[in-house]
Design a protein around this nucleic acid. Structure first.
Lengths: 221, 221
DNA sequence: TTTTTTAAATGACTGCGGGTCATTAAATAA
DNA sequence: TTATTTAATGACCCGCAGTCATTTAAAAAA
């Protein structure tokens, strides 16, 4: 807040202003979550009026889609940095899981991507987002192949499948926090049994085994 | 609409009215989806005024949670009916996938359960819902064990994991329909590669193999 | 320097959403 | 027939996403 009060006239200035909004959005999102996020509050945080936000983003979801794109890139860099020359399957998936959760925005946005965010976004933005995704998958797959001794197509399949599993496994983490409530033992036991870390790591390992085991020719039948 | 205009005085009548609302909600949901669903429109469909709905449900999400509970029970019955004495892993997961998708409400509600629905619901309703879930898991696991030659704890783990995978795999189906839009080939190829059926069945089989292979003693380390 | 032009920023506005509550009236009990 | 209960009503509140005619800061032209 209270940084630039000048009007953004050049493309550079506009780009900078846009990023200012995104930074504030990231902060607002981390504070109130997806459902609590409002454009009016975001505007206050940026220090502009609500209408100004719509000069830079067509809809609220365009903000989220951009945040998602940025968080995907950000996470993939962190993850790639932590990859070693050779890792066990378990180390690989643990690193993937840990880095993904460490980013405050990535998982919550990924969770809502298809069924909420993509539904109020221009086709151009959607295509751009998918292209960004393709690029990240390719990059991750390229780096993954040697680490896990997979060929290229196996590696691509693995990376895509990890995304699927990550969304499914981390569902449990999105439940309302029940701290201070008295939960019956049977229900508490159920909740405990859905520890996202356990579920992700265990099944990710099973899937890697499955991918590695299958001979490349068989796909359907 | 225009069935019962009498006031609901007895518990039975109130229960009936409640179910009338739920039936209309199911219809409304199937027509407009989660985001398009509104209490005002639901009221019109039921033939009452909006405030009346709040005599029977505390919040909009209580309606959804109840619909989810009912859809879970409904689907599990259909699925259990289709189980044979002995099936291949692939037949089992295909049946699971097909029956789950055939129910119009189950997947869309399951997708939103933890991060949306559960966040605006009373603790009592949440506990009741979890109890219902536990019961269905137990029932499904009991029936699954002999079909796939698993022991009880393997079978419970399998059923729970199928839920996780189902949510992750069907994400792609929730994307906006891009019919009539011209999508670049690279993006279209990406979308095609996320066929939920392929992903679910392939990885479900891998997970079953993994569960069956692991000796029962090893869990963590 | 002064005037004109451009477009970033504004803020009042619309419509719709979930949810509330004092009032009304239908059914039951007295 | 009258009194009591409570299901149902509908007007109401507030916050939301998104719009647009108007304002005004800054660049371009004079």
């Amino acid at each position: 807040m209270s940084t630039e009060r000048r009007r953004a006239r050049t493309e550079d200035e506009k780009h900078f202003r846009r990023q200012q909004i995104l930074d504030a959005a990231e902060q607002h999102f981390s504070e109130v979550g997806y459902e609590g996020f409002s454009m009016a509050n975001l505007a206050k945080l940026v220090g502009v009026v609500k209408g100004t936000l719509y000069l830079y983003f067509k809809t609220r979801e365009e903000v989220f889609l951009t945040l998602y794109n940025q968080s995907l890139v950000r996470w993939s860099h962190v993850f790639l940095e932590q990859l070693q020359g050779s890792m066990t399957d378990r180390d690989y998936v643990t690193t993937l899981y840990t880095t993904a959760l460490a980013d405050g925005s990535f998982i919550p946005l990924l969770t809502r991507l298809e069924h909420v965010i993509e539904h109020n976004v221009s086709i151009e933005s959607l295509i751009q987002s998918k292209r960004n995704f393709i690029e990240r998958v390719d990059c991750l797959a390229q780096a993954t192949a040697p680490v896990l001794s997979l060929n290229q197509s196996q590696s691509v399949e693995l990376v895509k499948t990890m995304g699927v599993l990550l969304v499914g496994a981390t569902r449990a983490d999105q439940s309302p926090s029940l701290h201070g409530e008295d939960i019956p033992d049977d229900v508490q036991a159920l909740i405990d049994s859905f520890s996202s870390e356990n579920i992700f790591i265990k099944n990710a390992c099973r899937i890697i085994s499955g991918i590695r085991t299958a001979d490349g020719s068989i796909t359907e039948s």
